[in-house]
C-alpha cells in the first residue's frame, strides 16, 4: 500500500465520476444537470492535472494530456454557461444547454481514457 497511489488514483477516479454525474440526464434539459456539480468537477479535474505534473515517463505524458483535454472542455462549458446566463439575453435555452452538456461529454471521454490508462498500468506492473 502506497499513500501516493491512493491520493493519485482517488483524484483521477473522482474527476471521472463527477464528470459523469454532471453529464447524466437529457442533453437539452438543464434541470437534469447541476451547475454546482460542474464546478466541483472542474476543481477536481484541475487538482488531478496538478498531481500529474512532473512525470517524465511516456505514460505520465499521456495521462497529463488527457487531463489537459478534460479541463479544456469543462472550462469551455463553464464559460458558455457564464455567457448565456450572465451576459446574453437569451438565457439558458435548450440549445445552449445542449452545447454545455455535450462539451462535458467530451471531457468525460478524456477522463475515461485517463482511468483506463491508470488501471492498465497498475495491472501491467502486477504488484
Amino acid at each position: 500500500m502506497n499513500s501516493e497511489k491512493i491520493v493519485f488514483s482517488f483524484f483521477i477516479v473522482l474527476a471521472l465520476t463527477l464528470n459523469f454525474g454532471f453529464f447524466m440526464g437529457d442533453i437539452d434539459d438543464f434541470t437534469h444537470h447541476n451547475i454546482y456539480e460542474l464546478f466541483v468537477a472542474i476543481v477536481v479535474n484541475l487538482i488531478a492535472m496538478g498531481l500529474k505534473l512532473g512525470d517524465r515517463t511516456q505514460v505520465g505524458a499521456v495521462l497529463l494530456s488527457t487531463s489537459l483535454v478534460a479541463n479544456l472542455q469543462l472550462l469551455a462549458a463553464a464559460m458558455i454557461w457564464a455567457y448565456v446566463t450572465q451576459i446574453s439575453a437569451s438565457g439558458l435555452s435548450a440549445d445552449n444547454a445542449s452545447v454545455i452538456i455535450s462539451l462535458s461529454g467530451g471531457a468525460l471521454i478524456a477522463n475515461v481514457i485517463s482511468v483506463v490508462m491508470l488501471v492498465s498500468e497498475t495491472l501491467m506492473s502486477r504488484r
Binding site: N2, E4, K5, F8, G50, L51, G54, D55, G60
Partner: peptide
C-alpha cells in the same frame, strides 16, 4: 522499485 522496493514519487507534488 527494483532498486529500493518502493516506487519513487511520480510527480512534482508528491
Amino acid at each position: 522499485y527494483l532498486l529500493t522496493g518502493v516506487e519513487p514519487a511520480r510527480s512534482h507534488f508528491f
